[in-house]
Nucleic acid binder design. Structure first.
Lengths: 229, 229
DNA sequence: TTACAAATGTCGGGAAGGCGACAAACTCAA
DNA sequence: TTGAGTTTGTCGCCTTCCCGACATTTGTAA
């Protein structure tokens, strides 16, 4: 039996809130747990998919890949988030690639089962809508950022968001273990690898952030936030 | 009594599909119809909102405005689409500005009424989720476009999408009455007004499109589509 | 330890496109 | 029809940042 609160908690919304153990047991029975190694795909673009996934541990990136090899990461998901939910809306599966950023544990549920479950549980459904809505909000945010901010500010904004979402407070500074590569940050902020390197080093020189190849820390949140606007 | 099919039809999903006249009558009672003139706002950013809107006639743009006056249009909605649905997910209303692009007729429903209705109608709920999901898809698309394509291709892609969504076939060519201003196209494609003017005139010289201040037509869809990739 | 791959750091040329400036064309109301 | 306000057309400068090239550092497996 899963621990409800940990297993299924969505960022701001626990979509299984208020369910009793019997109901949760049903859900358990319909799901399969899988481990996915770092850099392994969870689903491919255009691949017909009948599954919806719940991310229990680790991080997953959703990205789109252009034929010339360029890539943009649309979103990075952490524990407690749903992915593949867009397969609900149409046939033909997703348009994005979902890939594990570290070692990931996911629960898989058949899309039909999920639909049935949702149909029988209006409150859950409403919460799912809210969840998709939140994601929509995040995208809106990202899009305005892409349009309004220069590279510098985009990268800074990203660092802040990333630290807020995935960072751990450790001795006054916010630390993120297992940092992304510069190339991945470039994909996330729609810029080039070289520019990321330069900007990050600038910020390090200014003592606003600090990082090695495996850890990243924000030293001065306030100043950084100021620079991001 | 509203004509169901016309009144409530969402782009790909009729969210009131399968309802009988009694149910539709209930819905009617909970909605108010309003006319909004061209260039008038429907709702403002940050303004607490308790309403959800159904667009019956006309077009609405959703945009975000930066403090320095720059603007990006996130989406343009046509008849049959929903707006304000994100107010469902959180307090504090929307982050965008919704403004009428032409003369608009909208139906307003209280957010609580809508929630109740949705709770009592799981199928409707699922369709709403799909609707938000579709919008999410559109945003993903737009974001990758912003990241991958140069200004030229972005503008061309926009013209195609715009024609497909809102154009009328008239004597072999697709025509759109009441064209947007170059400034508005610039907001939509995240570029500058001058660049839009230049690109459009280039395309006109190549006889791929044609336009005056009040009408716009695509002469060669295929070629244009080719140039947009 | 060594060897190899991958990630990072640094430089400079060059293209894209933002932006100010201004003229011309159009729109509309008085 | 006249004049004011808006939209469109055109030019050129100048910033941003992409991108290739290459050196250096770090991680890792033998």
């Amino acid at each position: 039996m899963a621990e409800k609160s940990k297993f299924w908690y969505l960022k701001n919304i626990n979509i299984f809130d208020g369910m009793d153990d019997v109901q949760m047991g049903h859900i358990e029975k319909m799901t399969t747990m899988t481990y996915v190694d770092k850099h392994r795909p969870i689903y491919f673009p255009e691949q017909p998919s009948n599954n919806i996934y719940f991310l229990k541990e680790g991080h997953v990136k959703l990205s789109r890949i252009h034929e010339d090899g360029r890539e943009i990461i649309l979103d990075v998901l952490g524990p407690g988030e749903i992915l593949g939910e867009l397969s609900l809306i149409e046939e033909g599966g997703q348009k994005e690639l979902a890939e594990a950023l570290d070692n990931v544990l996911i629960c898989t549920m058949n899309k039909r089962d999920f639909e049935t479950m949702v149909m029988n549980n209006p409150a859950l459904n409403l919460r799912l809508t809210k969840w998709v809505g939140l994601r929509l909000r995040r995208f809106e945010e990202k899009m305005s950022e892409l349009a309004f901010k220069d590279v510098n500010k985009r990268i800074i904004s990203f660092l802040i968001r990333y630290a807020e979402d995935f960072g751990k407070i450790k001795g006054g500074t916010v630390t993120i273990p297992s940092f992304l590569s510069h190339q991945e940050i470039a994909y996330l902020t729609a810029t080039s690898r070289q520019t990321v390197t330069t900007v990050l080093n600038d910020l390090k020189t200014q003592r606003l952030i600090d990082f090695s190849r495996k850890e990243f820390a924000i030293k001065n949140f306030d100043k950084l936030r100021q620079l991001s606007l």
